[in-house]
Simulated scan of single mutants.
Amino acid sequence: MLVLVTGGTGFVGAHTVAALAAAGHRVRVLARDADRVAPALSPLSVPSEAVEVATGDVTDEPAVNRAVRGVDAVVHAASVYSFDSRWHAATRGTNVRGTEVVLDAARRFGVGRTVHVSTFGAMLPSPTGVVGPQSPPGTARETYLASKAKAERVARWHQDQGEPVVISYPPALLGPDDPKLGDQNSRLRNMLRGLMPVWPGGGFPVGDVRDTAALHAALLTVPLADGNRHFGPGRYLSTRDYVRAVREVTGRRLPTLFLPARAMLPFAQLTDVVQRVWPWHIPAEYGACYVCACDARPEAGAPSAGLTPRPFAETLADTVRWLHRSGRLTAAQAGRAAATSIDHGAPAAPSVRAAASRREEARP
């Protein structure tokens, strides 16, 4: 099967490409910069012969049409995921429009299966504190969550029209080999660097990017009769449990003050305003605090294609070890995890070849 993956140079997208290649699929990656594909995929040992590259942006209709033409399935993982207020304009301009363009193209070319990568946050806030496959898109005004809620409505409209669209809802994701050091891995790093001594109360679902990637590979073949909305494997953790788990993995004390999340929201809103002009990142974002204040969890038995999440301690340990190996944490900051860090010496994958746009147009 030839599968188009948008966002293949991002955290979720790159791991999804690796899972698809491991399952025997050929993958076409739509990327704005073809030179970023090999650095994102090589650490995951993706064979070069399994991947081709189409250059373009998800909001560019002609580029998307060229990329979609001839594929059997699409995994739409491209989005701007950040609570940093400096990224608000890019978030608004990409997340909804990109979903419209990609899903419209998949419909136009009769693609057999499209997986739209949403997020559990697309259904926040929940009046019951629980989100499930039938929960309505959320009404949050925070920029990232609002954009994903609007994209969710687009995907559900296609489902209502009878299109073979499957939606995945990843939890907050950690894991190694993050090409751009995204939101969650950055937060863990900041915590271990001593930049987050204060945490909001509440909690959120969290999981491993490799488990969500495995879900996306499974969703290409799961019968639509089994449901078309699936939650990424993960587990709900209170922020206290999260910090406790990091302490156990690293062996560090990590003194932390916990404050009521809703009481912290005004301060977090102020930091968002300051962040727009402050050149260095402030690790106190309104969106992250808002998610904790919502304190929502997936409903019991929410479908996840039968996949079971790996132990959270394993995810944490692997992530901290990678942060240390890649030079993003010192041995002291990584603590016990650094002492058990092992480089297995996996051979780097050959360079991923790029396909020119005219070659894409020549495909049937």
Score class of each variant (00 low, 15 high):
Ala31Ser: 10
Arg358Asn: 11
Pro200Met: 05
Val29His: 04
Gly132Tyr: 11
Arg66Tyr: 11
Thr330Asn: 07
Ser238Trp: 10
Glu361Lys: 14
Val243Tyr: 04
Ala14Glu: 00
His230Ile: 09
Glu285Tyr: 00
Val273Arg: 15
Val111Gly: 04
Ala334Trp: 01
Ala172Ser: 14
Leu30Ser: 00
Ala331Arg: 02
Ala362Glu: 04
Ser126Pro: 15
Ala73Gln: 12
Val249Asp: 05
Ala38Arg: 00
Pro176Ile: 02
Gln159Trp: 08
Ala218Ile: 14
Asp343Asn: 12
Asp211Phe: 08
Ala34Cys: 10
Val111Phe: 05
Asn95Arg: 14
Ala151Arg: 08
Gly93Trp: 11
Gly202Tyr: 01
Leu20Pro: 00
Thr330Glu: 08
Arg262Asp: 12
Trp157Ala: 15
Leu307Ser: 01
Val291Glu: 12
Gly306Met: 02
Glu142Pro: 13
Gly345His: 08
Leu4Tyr: 01
Asp183Ala: 14
Gly10Arg: 00
Gly251Lys: 04
Asp60Pro: 05
Thr139Ile: 07
Leu195Gly: 13
Val246Arg: 06
Asp272Ser: 12
Ala349Phe: 09
Val74Glu: 10
Gly335Ser: 05
Thr250Met: 03
Leu145His: 11
Val274Ile: 15
Glu361Asn: 13
Met191Asn: 10
Gly201Trp: 12
Ala346Asn: 10
Pro127Asp: 03
Ala90Pro: 06
Pro125Asp: 02
Ala331Met: 02
Thr9Gly: 01
Asn228His: 15
Val101Lys: 09
Val58Gln: 06
Gly132Leu: 12
Val68Met: 03
Ala23Ser: 08
Val37His: 00
Trp157Asp: 15
Gly301Thr: 07
Val274Leu: 11
Gln184Phe: 09
Gly227Thr: 00
Ser326Lys: 04
Ala90Ser: 12
Gly24Asn: 05
Val131Lys: 13
Val27Gly: 01
Asp177Pro: 05
Pro350Asn: 12
Val165Glu: 01
Leu4Glu: 02
His88Ala: 15
Tyr81Pro: 04
Gln134Gly: 15
Ala149Val: 09
Ser168Ile: 10
Val58Cys: 08
Arg156Tyr: 08
Ser304Ala: 10
Asp33Tyr: 04
Glu285Lys: 03
Asp208Lys: 08
Thr319Phe: 07
Pro47Asp: 05
Gly194Lys: 01
Leu30Ala: 04
His344Phe: 14
Leu307Asp: 00
Ala313Leu: 03
Val166Phe: 04
Leu219Phe: 07
His15Asp: 01
Phe109Lys: 07
Arg108Gln: 08
Ala218Trp: 09
Ala354Trp: 01
Arg92Asn: 10
Val80Asp: 04
Glu100Pro: 07
Val96Phe: 12
Gly138Gln: 00
Ala339Glu: 13
Met264Gly: 02
Ala21Glu: 14
Ser186Lys: 06
Gly13Met: 04
Ala225Trp: 11
Phe312Ala: 06
His281Glu: 15
Gly110Ile: 11
Glu299Ser: 05
Val273Asp: 07
Leu145Arg: 13
Ala317Trp: 08
Gln333Tyr: 00
Val209Asp: 06
Ala217Cys: 03
Ala73Trp: 10
Asn228Ala: 15
His88Lys: 15
Leu259Ile: 05
Arg325Met: 05
Thr55Asp: 09
Ser82Leu: 06
